[in-house]
Write a protein that binds this DNA or RNA. Structure first.
Lengths: 206, 206
DNA sequence: TAGGTTGCGAGACGATTTGTCTCAGAGATG
DNA sequence: CATCTCTGAGACAAATCGTCTCGCAACCTA
């Protein structure tokens, strides 16, 4: 009978944190292959039985470690200007994707989702919640006429977010300001809203 | 001393083909995790020792199985019209990505590439050769003024190919003609070239 | 067709890994 | 302080890994 619903034995929290951190580390440095109860236990400085106790199989080990999107300290409420909000969201995505530890986790997640239903569900949930604000800004922009009408918002999201993921996941290059700028420039209906500079207007023209 | 440099013992070819097919099957149906010398041997109907003989480790097993991009029967030489060529390439990419067996392989490749240098090299090579014609069309289009000037061709490639990969790899939805059309519409400099309808340009009669 | 070569499947083998279990002790709770 | 509960250590069987050997059949060459 727990005195408080949220009360967690500090020992449990300790092992949990150590293990999750170790799994993330392993995914980043040695690939998803390396995630094994044994190796995780060693890396976390934790008994092997303790790992089995809390995570009966690899999937749950990965689920817990990949479940959190990296927190973004610079989150701001939507400004109401669709273009500015899309730029803000893309810049946020740029920062997250350029942050190196995240990419191997993402790749592992995608790969694992292809074969594991539970991981697939997690991946879809993360994608939905990660692109929620981008989608909101896009829908607003379509209504305001800043973005082309008659196009499925989901298509627009793919249109603007896709290039960033491509750069980082496929081409394995950092996402430049130029890419973000170009993506938005290409999207905005001409004459229907200036494209604000990303940071300091990265590329002045040529 | 082989009489001919290309002469391959039929027995070797037989096991090789069976094993490569089995690995592809395993990646598709059970995930990259399932790719084990043992399971591959069983699935291929081949002795375990034979698998070890030709593929000393998992990496080489995966390399050989993932090395080939799916052949595209409808490859046509570039028409010289940049817009038409970009559409043709994107349609080709659309077909390849919508072909389900390929996506799990791709996801596995990306994930593995994060931790394995050899796989990374292969992935980069495949990407380069897979987007070569798209890049050529893009560069031509930039020179002709159909596409915005002053933009890095690599950026443009990310711009048009990214959304397709996003749709399939992240959103896990099939790539619609609408997406392809919108991607190209958004790219072409207004008034500098009509966007051909995707449906009409795709496989004739198909 | 005959003879030497070579890859094959089968399986033995020790080492390692996996998943489960027990147990004593440290740490948390009240 | 007394009572739980989680932990680390390690035992244990089962499964897997990587290597090896062997006899056989398929292959190539003459």
């Amino acid at each position: 009978m727990p005195t408080q619903p949220d009360a967690v034995d500090p020992r449990v929290a300790r092992t949990r944190d150590a293990v999750v951190a170790a799994v993330r580390d392993l995914v980043r440095t040695a690939g998803i292959e390396a995630v094994t109860h044994q190796r995780v236990a060693e890396a976390a400085g934790v008994g092997r039985a303790s790992v089995y106790r809390h995570w009966p199989d690899r999937t749950h080990l990965l689920l817990d470690a990949l479940a959190d999107l990296p927190a973004d300290p610079s989150e701001r409420p939507p400004s109401g200007d669709p273009v500015a909000d899309v730029v803000a969201e893309l810049t946020r995505l740029q920062r997250i994707l350029n942050d190196s530890p995240f990419v191997p986790q993402l790749a592992a997640l995608l790969s694992q989702a292809e074969a594991d239903g539970e991981v697939l569900a997690l991946q879809q949930r993360l994608l939905t919640q990660g692109t929620a604000r981008l989608r909101a800004a896009v829908e607003l922009g379509v209504r305001h006429g800043c973005f082309p009408a008659g196009v499925d918002p989901g298509t627009v999201v793919a249109l603007v977010a896709g290039p960033l993921f491509y750069r980082r996941l496929l081409a394995k290059e950092p996402i430049t300001d130029e890419l973000v700028t170009t993506v938005v420039e290409r999207l905005v209906v001409p004459g229907n809203g200036p494209v604000p500079a990303v940071g300091e207007r990265a590329v002045p023209g040529g």
